[in-house]
Design a protein around this nucleic acid. Structure first.
Lengths: 175, 175
DNA sequence: GTGAACATGTAAATTGTTACATGATTAC
DNA sequence: GTAATCATGTAACAATTTACATGTTCAC
């Protein structure tokens, strides 16, 4: 799902600004998509040019908040983009890359890496648990439960094996 | 981990060609990194220019296999890149994006989406289980067990809730 | 009064995907 | 013979990140 579609997706829940979209993505979408401000603003401009979103109210001053509303065209585009998704998932994990080549690292670095990942996973778990599920669609709740299942499995794995791995690797280390 | 580093990583296990690197990544790295041929060849050329890899043997004919070897400089670069990784992981999931906006889809499409993801996860599980763990470092085995833990959790979740969700959503559907 | 968060936007640079172009070898 | 796999490389295009540039508002 590209940034333009993500913008339409956020706006389908209510009017907001470019900055607001970033916050919404960080808070409510980050378990499956991400978008930075440098990508959101051009995407929003493009979407406006295509008539998928329209400015609501008038923002005359240069650095003033500019709210957007999803148009009917935008709603159709979002539905089409949703219908076009496939059942794919790709993980980009510097963490696992580091562990894969852990034999090139100091033991302290490996330790720090595991702790960092655990902290990140716990933060993610808190975020997911803090989401207002009551106001959500069945589908949204589904994605949160799915993400909680995998996050939970990762945490459990690292809590069990994360400590042990450092010890195990010390025996394999080439001095 | 960018494509150039991935190339160095693959070559750290033995000499191979650009095409061989893609296969190695698909077979042995795809649970945390990915690289397409269109990215590998330029990355390899750049790595050669930097003295991180060198051609082994001579390939005179234009479309002949060109083997590469990791140099000492390349080994250092790989170690540095590994030391620089953080404990981050990002999931890009068209699957969850589709489920998030499932209220915009036909029930059949949602069903197909879940089935697609389940098939993909089972394929991934088979790949991970088929890897030659005996010849691996502790770190490599760790990444496989980690990936199997999350993959297993996803499969279990979809097997339990994947069917039910379609039914549950029918009650919420706006006709 | 100072730092964090709010707020918009541009641009350079990087990065990567996909398609194009070409051809050999291998298994059925 | 024909499809798949092996094999290299380029180029157009798309997408994104990071940094730059600017300024406000709010809480402590």
């Amino acid at each position: 799902m590209d940034v333009r579609t993500v913008c339409l997706g956020v706006l389908s829940f209510g009017d907001t600004s470019g900055y607001g979209i970033r916050k919404a993505v960080q808070d409510g979408f980050s378990h499956f998509a991400q978008a930075s401000l440098g990508a959101i603003y051009p995407a929003l401009a493009k979407a406006q040019a295509r008539g998928e979103v329209e400015p609501v109210g008038a923002a005359d001053a240069p650095l003033e908040k500019r709210m957007f509303r999803l148009t009917e065209i935008g709603r159709v585009t979002l539905a089409e983009a949703t219908a076009a998704v496939d059942g794919t998932e790709t993980l980009r994990s510097p963490f696992l890359a580091g562990m894969f080549f852990a034999h090139l690292l100091e033991m302290d670095d490996v330790h720090r890496l595991v702790d960092d990942r655990l902290a990140g996973l716990r933060r993610e778990q808190r975020r997911l648990r803090g989401l207002p599920t009551a106001e959500m669609t069945e589908g949204q709740r589904f994605t949160i439960r799915y993400a909680l299942a995998t996050t939970g499995a990762s945490i459990a794995f690292l809590e069990q094996e994360g400590r042990a791995i450092v010890t195990a690797m010390q025996h394999q280390r080439i001095p």
